[in-house]
Structures are given as structure tokens and as C-alpha cells.
Amino acid sequence: MNWKFTGDRPVYQQIMETLRGAVLKGELPPGGKVPSVRDLAAQAQVNPNTMQRALTELEREGLLVGGGTSGRTVTREQKVLEAMREETLRALARECAEKFMVFGVTPTQAAGLLLALDEVKEES
């Protein structure tokens, strides 16, 4: 997992995003075991309390299940996984759109630019 943090947003939220990303990328597959709070905290170099909080929040969202002595796993619920994927991509689109708006580019114009990227790829 790629742990990078910025100082201007709560660390637990950034951890949640990284873990969601890991599930989407298949680094943490559905039904797979999630490392312990201690191991994850050491990997990410964050406070174990903060890691605990992020995992608890993801449990509340339904992405992670368990949490007892046997440890947590990633859910196998297709609905939950789909919803998470959808929400992550939407958030990415929103973030992207905001960046374009700074330069006065509307989402429609931005979509045109994205499509152009697709053509470049097909050519090469």
C-alpha cells in the first residue's frame, strides 16, 4: 500500500481512502484478511489509535467485517463493494472537476479533454 499523507486533512480520513484504494486495486481482495492495527500503523507510520479509528469507520461503512479476535477481513458483499467503487470514482471526478474549474474549464469541456486522451492511447 502506498501511504502518503498531507497535513491539512484528518489522518484517519486519508487512511480510509488508502485502504479503499487498496481494495479497489485488489491489494486487499474481497474476503481477504486485513493486517492488524499494529502492523498497519507501523507500515503507515501513524499512531495506532488513528489506525484503529480508520478501521472502525470502514467497519461501520460495511467494507470491513469482523474485528474480533480473529481479525478483520474485507467484505464479500458485492453491493457494498460496488457502492464503494462508485463513490470513490465519483469523488475522483469531483476532485478533477474542481481542478478544471480553477482554470474556468467546465466539466463538459474537461470531458472532451479526457476523450482526447483516449484517442492518443488508441493511436499509440
Partner: peptide, 30 residues
């Protein structure tokens, strides 16, 4: 990144105390 809480101290007094993530959440500042 490793702090739960912070205490700002100046001239022998506590100036401010709080939770690190709460500051980031409320002020958008590190």
C-alpha cells in the same frame, strides 16, 4: 502524523490543547 493530541505551551502556560485530527478537520490546517 503520530500524535493523538497536542499541547501548545508558551511562557510557562498552556496556550491550547486538543486532538490533532480535529484541528485538521475544523481548520484544514496542519
Amino acid at each position: 502524523r503520530v500524535l493523538d493530541e497536542f499541547v501548545f505551551i508558551n511562557q510557562g502556560k498552556v496556550l491550547r490543547q486538543g486532538a490533532a485530527d480535529q484541528v485538521r478537520e475544523e481548520t484544514g490546517k496542519s
